[in-house]
Write a protein that binds this DNA or RNA. Sequence first.
RNA 1: CGGGACGUAGCGCAGCUUGGUAGCGCGCAGCGUUCGGGACGCUGAGGUCGUGGGUUCAAGUCCCACCGUCCCGACCA
Length: 575
Amino acid sequence: MRWTQAFIPTLRDAPADAEAISHKLLVRGGFIRQLAAGSYSILPLGVRVRNKVAGIIREEMNRIGGQEFLLPALHPAEIWKTSGRWDLMGDNLFRLQDRKQVDHALGMTHEEVFASIATELFSYRELPQIWYQIQTKFRDEPRPKSGLLRVREFTMKDSYTLDIDLPGIDSGFDRHRAAYFAIFRRCGLDPIDVEASSGAMGGSESVEFMVRSEAGEDWIVTCGNCGYRANVERAASAVEPVDDGAGADLERFPTPGLRTIKALAEAHPEVASPDRQIKTLVYILDGEPVLVLLRGDHELQEQKLMDVTGAIEARPAQPEEIRELLGADPGSLGAVGVRGPTVIADRALEGRKKLVTGANEDDWHYSGVDLGRDIEVGVWAELRAVGAGEPCSVCGRPLERWKGIEVGHIFKLGTKYSEAFGATVQDESGESRPIIMGSYGIGVERAMAAVVESSHDEGGIIWPVSVAPYEVVITVVRPDDGPTMEVAIGLYQELTAAGIEVLLDDRDERPGVKFADSELIGIPYRVTVGPRGVAEGVIELTTRRGMVKSEVPLGDLVGTVRAAVESRRLGTEPS
RNA sequence: CGGGACGUAGCGCAGCUUGGUAGCGCGCAGCGUUCGGGACGCUGAGGUCGUGGGUUCAAGUCCCACCGUCCCGACCA
C-alpha cells in the first residue's frame, strides 16, 4: 500500500484528558476514532491489527477442535427470559422493541443462542463439541472508559464447550486455558491466569487472563513465593491470629460524636484499636437487608458477599433504611442482640472476644463483645478485601497486589443453560442428560489495546510482527528523486512478492515527519531509502523495538527483512 | 446512579470574570524556497460558539433546562 493512497490520519494533538496511553496512541496513530461514549470506529490501520488478532484466535481455536459459527447480535427477548437473564442482567442488557412492540435484546453474550442450537444434539456420541464465533457484543456499561478497554460495543471471541460429564468439561476447560495462553503470547502479551468470581454468568469455576497494566481496572493478588494468584474479588489471605485473653462482660459505654472506626480508636486506644472493633455494614441483597461484620481495619469485598449469598444485586443500605432497621445511624451500628436480618461475618472475626461495636443507639457502643456469646452469626465467610503485604493463605509469604487488564475469561457453566433450553443427550445407558457447558471469552479490541499498553515508547506504538498492521514500512526520504524512488518501488515490489505486508511512505513530507509517523503507528521494521544510501548501495534497516539501526547492502535487503519478518510472524518468537 | 470538570473551525485550545465586529497553534488548498529526524514565506478556504428557552437595545460571554463528553466511586471481554 502506498501511504499517499491510504487513509492514515495521524495526529499531533490528542485529547488531553485521555487516561489510558493505548487510547491516546491508537487515536493519534489513526487506528480508531470515537463516535460516542464507548463506541469506536475502527479505521483501516486498526482493522488490519484486529484481523491479525482475530486470525491468531481463529488458528488456536481451530487447533483445539473449535468450529466457527456466526450468530445474530439481535436476539428475541424470549431466549433471555428462558434463561432467566432478561431480568437478571438489569441495565447492562441493551433492550429494544420492533415495530410490533415485541421485545428484543442486543446480545451481550451467547449462551442462550448456543444452548438453543445445542438442542439438535441427541447422543453422547456427538460430544464433546467446541463451538465458537468472533462477533459483536453489546453491553450498556455504566461507565465506558479508557478508549477500547471498556466500551459498549466490541468484538468478542466467545466459545462454548459441550460435554457429557465432568472429566469432559475439565478437558475442554484445560484446552481453552492452553489455547488462551498461546493466543495472548502470540499477540505479544504476557498473560497470567488467576482465580476469579463467576459473577452473573453462573457456574462453578472461573479463571481470568490478566495482563499487568496500570490502565487495568482489576486488582490482582499474587504470591511471589508459591505462585498463588487470584483476582481480589476472590483472593484470600491469612490473618495473624489475635490473642484476646480471657474475655470480658458486655458493657455499654457512651461515645458521643465518635462515628468512625478511627475516631473511636483514637478516643479509646486501650480498648478500641481498629483490630479490636467490629465494623458493621448494612447491605441490601436483592431487596433483603443483611448485616455484614468485618474487623475494624478490614474492607469489604462486595463480590465475595455476592458470591457467598448468591445475590444478584448488592448495594449499601441508605441511611433511612439503616435507621428503620436498627434504630441508629451509621457510626453506632452493631449486631449484638439483633434479630431478623441475617448476620454474615468475616472469618477474621471467628472466636474473637473483648471487641467493641456499636450499640444501635446513637453515641453508644458496647465493649467486651464476644462473637460466640453476644452475636448470632448466621454465616461465616471470607468477605474482606485482601491488601498488599498480607500473608499468603497458602504459604504465609507477603502477597503482592497489582492492576491488570482482563483480556480473557473462562467459565465452567454446568447445566444452567442446557437445562433451561432442554439441550439434552442420551448417555450410554439411554438416559437423557443435560449437556454440561463451559463458556470462554476474549475481548478482541481490548486485547489490541492491551498490546499497546504493554508495548510502546515515547515515539509511539511498538507492534509485535504478529499483529502489526504492516510488517515493513519503506520510508522514501526523497520521493521526488527519480533513482531513489525507483529503488524504493523495486524493494516494495520484491518484498510484496515475497508475501510481506509493506507500506510505502511515498508522501512528499520532510523526513522527520515520516520517521515520526512510522514510529507512532509502530511498524516493526523500517526500510529507509534515500539518495545518499542509494548512491552508496546501502539501505538503512531500523527495528522499531529499541530503534536499532543497521546498514544493509541493497542486494541483501529483501533477504534480511524477509528472514526477520518470517521468523516472528507467528508470534512464537519474541519480536 | 452519586461527586467533579468540560462543550468555541478537522484536531488542540484562548476569549466568558467586566455582554458590543469570533481568535491562536496545528492541519487543509494554491504558489515558491526547502528536504536523512516533526522546515519556511506569501495567499486562501473553513465556525448554527452543543441544543432549546430566558434576561438585554445587544449574548460565545449572564440565568434556566436539556443533550453530549471526560475524570473519580459500585459492574465486565
